[in-house]
Design a protein around this nucleic acid. Structure first.
Lengths: 232, 232
DNA sequence: TAATCTTTACAAACTTTTTATAAATCCTTT
DNA sequence: AAAGGATTTATAAAAAGTTTGTAAAGATTA
């Protein structure tokens, strides 16, 4: 049997920490709790967890800084807990290296779903970056042939559409900010051209979504960016 | 009885070339010699050898570049000959696509052992790449006779048209960038001459497409390149 | 001289960018 | 909790800018 995944919970509020610990434990995860950023880093080094769930406001070393420090040494998935409505901080978190966020107050079910999604994503990552074919959910992207198949059928994409899709597929389950996507596809001088992104996301959806008006793959994260989803 | 293996020897020094030719011939191989990289490529296309032994320093097109060019179109084993002790060039050769490396001066026995090893290795590979006849969809290209049949009828192609088609046929289904195609057919110094490609694709289409204005085989991928399609 | 390759020029096709408007989302106030 | 206002997002379509297709003339080679 495989080892249970290890999850490091970082929160200075004891009630929330307890809820998270018990919720995750009852679903089979191995959990440890740290009350601030510094002890989180220590536990990370000692225990080598598979995923981190962290609050943003904490003593000693806040969530943003924790993300940055972790990113310097690891690709481990990080889920940030943020307050509803503070969109700016969400973007900052993602820029700092977070993979996803959950807005408080949150349901345990939602958090568990996000945790599963992140663990699945990192499990699916290719061991060597060399593989010329990306296979994710219903998608198959052959980088060498530059061809794209969705649910078995080939779709033709223009250059910009293609680059955008590749970026999505390479980051399934991860929330990508407008800034990030624009930089990746159009380059660093176009990170403010939100219109481009809207237009091309729309075109991509028309080509890959069964029902473009209620997207199943390219989900929008209002005020933040988009997330590529591969679940059925 | 099976055909003797064909070995293409590429060396501009006549003595060495002669030694290699006689040595290999007395061991039952079919041998041809080319004095430089360019004529080696020609002989390769015409004669479809099973293995290439090449020197590094040559006029016209050196051994490294020859390796790269061959690798674009073939998995044929390449053994490189070079002066003893040049470790850097050894690494470069292998990066360029060489399979093995023999330092001069060398014993014929050693070279023969390397040749046998490489041929043994490729003997296990699927036959497709070794065949002198490429059959793809409605196309039949006889590399040895340098003849092309489309839907049963032979078509006459000029040298450039022929090389272009061979490159397409060898990479069915893949999108080939302008850059790649120009490099493969015209060489590395012409990768910016997009006009050439447009003109020759047009000529090829006139010769092979049932309806050149709505191509069925050579499909264009706007802003990227072309893709050869073999479906009906 | 004939065949092939290179160069040139312009119309047609396609992608990207821009623009405009409707729909959705979020925040504030009641 | 509900309504209104501000901002963001979705969508369509026109405008702009490149690339591609094609013919034909010039250059080169055998």
């Amino acid at each position: 049997m495989t080892q249970p995944s290890r999850i490091l919970v970082v929160d200075d509020e004891p009630q929330i920490a307890r809820v998270l610990r018990t919720g995750l434990k009852t679903h089979g995860y191995d959990v440890r709790v740290a009350a601030d950023g510094l002890s989180a880093l220590e536990t990370f080094n000692d225990w080598n967890p598979d995923l981190v769930v962290t609050d943003l406001s904490m003593p000693n070393l806040d969530g943003l800084e924790l993300c940055r420090r972790l990113r310097q040494v690891s690709q481990i998935p990080i889920i940030v807990l943020s307050v509803r409505g503070e969109e700016k901080i969400k973007v900052e978190s993602l820029d700092a290296g977070a993979d996803d966020y959950v807005t408080k107050p949150f349901g345990m079910d939602e958090l568990l779903a996000r945790v599963r999604a992140q663990l699945r994503r990192t499990a699916a990552l290719p061991k060597s970056e060399a593989s010329p074919v990306l296979e994710v959910g219903d998608f198959r992207v052959d980088l060498e042939a530059r061809s794209v198949f969705v649910r078995g059928a080939e779709v033709h994409l223009t250059p910009k559409e293609y680059e955008l899709l590749v970026h999505f597929v390479r980051n399934v389950g991860k929330v990508l900010t407008h800034h990030t996507l624009l930089g990746a596809v159009w380059g660093g001088n176009y990170t403010e051209q939100g219109e481009y992104l809207r237009v091309f996301v729309g075109q991509l959806r028309k080509k890959i979504e069964p029902n473009p008006s209620t997207p199943r793959y390219i989900l929008t994260e209002p005020w933040v960016g988009y997330r590529f989803n591969s679940d059925s």
